[in-house]
Design a protein around this nucleic acid. Structure first.
Length: 485
RNA sequence: CGCGGGGUAGAGCAGUGGUAGCUCAUCAGGCUCAUAACCUGAAGGCGGCCGUUCGAGUCGGCCCCCCGCAACCA
């Protein structure tokens, strides 16, 4: 009865430190992965780093370091997120410079080529001598570089390989029509449909090696390397051992595939990659979930110049992984952009974790201790299949890929328990009707236990602490979450 | 008419036709099991105009403002 679930994030490009937005993406992927593992499904969770391309090449050159060393050091930083954010220990981490990935990307190219979707043609680009950069039309104002309007643009021309993206306009539209819930949320699905409806353009998928050698070599052409996107997207299957491998068969072909991405990746994930899969005769992704962005508290995009950048390392160091995991699932909108600041995280920490979960655990367990309340607790693993004590909205939320709502359910449970204590006043009742007071506390202990267990996908450490406190009927020596001043 | 999102209490959000809700912050009260925590109550709100409707935050039109994207920004 158990299912195979494949969950992947996008691969962040390693030209800067891990962004808190990516931390959110991987945390949300991890929450879903943990949940599915807990209810008995087989889960393959993938993340990694995208390490090829012009920007990385240029940056390494500029810093005067060997490009391999440059990407190695970044890969380590991103791998560090796994411990930092307390991600599932069996998470798969793929680097697009891994040999197995490079081979898979080349194999993928060959198949797409054999199927007739790759052709060679002249590629013309506009080059601003002032910037020393290629410019796309969208970057130009009145056909001139806005930074150097006095300089004429040079036309450079080279032979590149192109992907026949245009052939997939109709197949993609048909695919969208047949899979009405392919992209979540709806408004992003509409956005990509409109984009595809306008008609797709072929695009170059290679670069001249002489100019930019940092890429996967094009099979059968010494002089060209792959355009970074064409290579990078293949990671979603190369991580599974494609073209061979049991994992590919079990998880991609016979399992349920879920891709989580930021809204900047809508096109690449839901159109480009899907067309590539079609071109290679591989099954399409089952579901793409698109997150919004995290902005500064003023709603403006985070940037170093505005000084509103949140560094995940700093916040975790101060508040702990669970607090960050909590904030990024509970307080951040599922799909819309959200503002974020350290102050907002701390506010939520005090309200929900210190005053909420932490304090509740203390007061309930303390009463159980004092009144010698004995409770028979179920096995944690049975909680996941208990339909009597667990609201179905909890599981529904996960089925709908909105774990935030499951967490809302748990936080409501916390509030109800606090209210129950205030209403029933077992601490007062114990003096006149001990039995009834004990029943109240036993009921609280049981509910707290359930809440604690169900917290595991979101906050594994906290979950363990709550479960232990209830199980051993001992208040934690250190507060689970100490209130911040 | 390029594409999309948004404008609901001081802040952050929910609310897709039927008495406008939640969290934080503020003020007042209660409680003492608990981490000065918890509970109750109060004040305070749908960007603007027009329309559809018995009834509009919700549907339609126009306008204003904010934010992304525009084929390599998580």
């Amino acid at each position: 009865m158990s299912k195979n679930i494949y969950i992947t994030t996008t691969l962040p490009y390693v030209n800067s430190d891990p962004h808190v937005g990516f931390a959110m993406e991987i945390i949300r992927a991890d929450v879903l992965a943990r949940y599915h593992g807990l209810i008995g499904n087989n889960v393959f969770l993938n993340t990694g780093t995208d390490e090829h391309g012009t920007k990385i090449w240029e940056k390494a050159q500029a810093e005067g370091i060997d490009v391999q060393k440059y990407v190695d050091s970044y890969a380590e930083k991103f791998k560090g997120l796994s411990d930092l954010l307390n991600l599932s220990s069996d998470i798969h981490f793929i680097r697009t410079t891994d040999e197995s990935h490079v081979k898979a990307a080349q194999e993928f190219w060959k198949i797409v080529d054999q199927n007739g979707y790759i052709y060679k043609a002249p590629y013309e680009a506009k080059y601003c001598v002032g910037c020393e950069l290629e410019k796309t039309d969208s970057e130009l104002v009145d056909g001139r570089c806005p930074i150097h309007p006095d300089k004429d643009l040079e036309l450079i021309s080279e032979e590149n390989y192109f992907f026949k993206f245009s052939d997939f306009t109709q197949p993609l539209l048909d695919f969208y029509e047949q899979n009405k819930n392919f992209v979540l949320p709806d408004f992003r699905f509409n956005e990509i449909k409109k984009f595809v409806e306008r008609g797709l353009r072929d695009f170059p998928i290679s670069r001249v090696k002489e100019k930019m050698p940092w890429g996967v070599p094009v099979p059968g052409d010494e002089d060209q390397v792959m355009y970074v996107w064409f290579d990078a997207l293949v990671n979603y299957i190369s991580t599974l051992g494609w073209p061979n491998g049991e994992d590919f068969k079990n998880f991609w072909e016979e399992g349920f595939t879920l891709q989580i991405a930021g809204k900047d990746n809508l096109r690449q994930q839901s159109a480009m990659w899907q067309a590539m899969l079609m071109a290679a005769n591989i099954k399409n992704t089952d579901k793409v979930v698109i997150n919004g962005f995290l902005n500064g508290p003023d709603g403006k995009k985070m940037s170093k110049s505005l000084g509103n950048v949140i560094n995940p390392y700093d916040v975790v160091k101060e508040l702990g992984a669970d607090a960050v995991r909590f904030y990024l699932t509970y307080n951040v909108s599922s799909f819309e952009d959200s503002p974020i600041s350290v102050e907002m995280i701390k506010e939520s920490f005090n309200a929900n974790l210190a005053n909420g979960i932490g304090n509740l655990t203390n007061r309930v367990v303390k009463m159980a201790e004092n009144y010698d309340v004995v409770v028979k607790l179920p096995e944690p693993k049975d909680v996941w299949f208990d339909k009597e004590h667990v609201g179905q909205e909890y599981h529904e939320a996960f089925k709908n890929f909105e774990p935030q709502k499951a967490l809302e359910y748990l936080m409501n449970e916390v509030r109800e328990m606090d209210l129950f204590i205030a209403t029933e006043q077992p601490f007062k009742k114990v003096k006149v009707d001990e039995l009834s007071a004990k029943e109240d506390v036993a009921r609280l202990m049981l509910n707290l236990f359930y809440m604690g267990v169900l917290l595991e996908p979101f906050m594994p450490e906290t979950s363990a602490k709550v479960v232990e406190a209830v199980g051993t009927r001992t208040t934690p020596k250190e507060p689970i979450f100490k209130r911040l001043d």
